[in-house]
Write a protein that binds this DNA or RNA. Structure first.
Length: 424
RNA sequence: GGAGAGAUGCCUGAGAGGCCGAAAGGACAUGUUUGCUAAACAUGCGUACGGGUAACCGUACCGAGGGUUCGAAUCCCUCUUUCUCCGCCA
């Protein structure tokens, strides 16, 4: 959520940036917010004045009662009864205006960084770099969903029996590969100074609002209605919410956390080749990195996070490319996002495996995650996060890219974790 | 799941209808002093919104939300949560 004070003081800048995001009717929405804000200020002043008067009278009544002047006190009481009426009115009005502002404010996306490319669709994303060699596969090469069956690594049908489509069962070396990747990713992250945390994978609605999944993506999360809890779509939600309603010391920054969790996504509306095999699942594993930083450092931090994720792909020897997302393809809360995509050699397409974003104050404003600066002033910190990495598509391209006539080669860095270097 | 006791500022903790945005101590910050570590003393030290060039002023907040009252941290109700005991259980 954008800060009202920021919108008020930087209207032109906000409009310019929202335009990058193709936010419809930006000007009229912002104007509505600002005029509501004026109404809010007026209502508050009126409400405060009435309350001040009532407080004063109450104090006088107290004095009179103490000195035994009962009758005078009674007269004043009548007066306060009147005040109470208008107090109620103004409070009501204030509450309504605030609710209205809030309602609109949560529908306004974050203001993109000025370097974000203009555009509407994934085709408009800017390719920042491409790394690695696209492998030439042998003549009988097949996509990963055939490899997983051939070598008995993943049973999709069994998952359908147990739960439904998109909930695969990993078996044998397939299961071990999952565990290996998780441990490898966590080890790399902790060696870079990220503190590993293991958060709950169900969260309450407050947490959903804190990171912006609610109300924006209500339908994309699994919801346990009996207890009103949500299954997390990413570890970003619980990990970032650790810092909800927290005032940090400047010396605490940057906060670097990483964590492995399963992630749950309803993916309502997806279909076809997009969801084949491991391409899109309802439950998948991911290691996430999160940083809370000083505002001046957040873009520098974004680059180091991107480089970290790149280094993982390089070590896994997967060809990848980095995209700087255009305004239209960026998520609701992000100010700047890099997507990293690996090449899936049998499907002959790029698969997104990581998304690294700077949210600036968009999340921390809702979270009320602040820090005290050198002057003792509290201000909002910046939050960032990135996948490092999401497993299924990594597995898909590992299997496809490394397949030979006899089986699948495991990248060197993983062998200590898998305990085998070949699946045959 | 049942019974009881709690929830106060960064922490400990007093306050039991008006004198309470809240004692006291600790922590922290600044200053003075002593040769360093440190100690002593003094001062300061919550958040948000609104008004004001500013000093400052107003309002709200004592787990959350309602209620009673002229007036609520304090009384009542609901919820959340913590602790103790019992039950169940990896």
């Amino acid at each position: 959520m954008l800060q009202l004070s920021y919108i008020r003081e930087n209207k032109e800048d906000v409009l310019k940036r929202l335009d990058i995001k193709n936010f419809k009717d930006a000007e009229s929405v912002i104007n509505t917010i600002l005029s509501l804000d004026d109404k809010r200020k007026l209502a508050q002043r009126q409400a405060d004045d009435v309350k001040a008067e009532a407080n004063g009278l109450a104090k006088q009544i107290g004095e009179l009662m103490k000195t035994g002047k009962k009758e005078e006190a009674e007269t004043l009481k009548l007066k306060t009864t009147e005040l109470k009426q208008s107090e109620k009115q103004f409070d009501e009005e204030l509450k309504n205006i605030e609710a209205e502002i809030q309602k609109i404010l949560v529908t306004v996306p974050n203001t993109p960084n000025l370097t974000v490319p203009r555009g509407k669709t994934p085709e408009d994303n800017e390719v920042v770099n491409e790394h690695g060699v696209i492998p030439e596969l042998h003549a009988n090469a097949v996509p990963h969903w055939e490899l997983t069956t051939k070598f008995d690594l993943i049973d999709f049908e069994l998952g359908v029996k147990l739960t439904g489509a998109g909930f695969p069962v990993y078996k044998g070396k397939g299961a071990r590969l999952q565990r290996a990747l998780i441990n490898y990713f966590l080890d790399k992250a902790t060696s870079k100074g990220y503190l590993e945390v293991q958060p709950p994978i169900l969260v309450n609605a407050d947490s959903g609002y804190g990171t912006g999944q609610l109300p924006d993506k209500e339908g994309q999360m699994y919801h346990c209605q009996v207890d009103d809890l949500y299954l997390i779509p990413t570890a970003e939600v619980p990990i970032t919410n650790i810092y909800r309603d927290v005032i940090l010391k400047e010396s605490d920054l940057p906060i670097k956390n990483c964590g492995y969790t399963p992630c749950f996504r309803r993916e309502a509306g997806s279909y076809g080749k997009d969801v084949r095999g491991l391409n899109r699942l309802h439950q998948f594993d991911k290691v996430e990195i999160v940083q809370i930083t000083n505002p001046e450092k957040s873009y520098e931090t974004l680059e180091t996070m991107r480089e970290f994720v790149s280094s993982l792909l390089q070590e896994l020897e997967l060809p990848y490319r980095t995209l700087k997302l255009c305004g239209g393809d960026m998520s609701f809360g992000s100010a700047l996002t890099y997507d990293l995509e690996v090449w899936s050699a049998a499907q002959k397409r790029w698969l997104e495996v990581s998304s690294v974003s700077n949210f600036e104050t968009f999340q921390t404003n809702r979270l009320k995650c602040r820090y005290k600066d050198a002057n003792g002033k509290t201000q909002l910190a910046h939050s960032l996060n990135g996948s490092a990495l999401a497993l299924p598509r990594i597995v898909a391209s590992l299997l496809e890219n490394n397949q030979t006539e006899n089986g699948i080669k495991i990248p060197k860095v993983l062998v200590p974790y898998t305990g085998f270097d070949f699946i045959g």
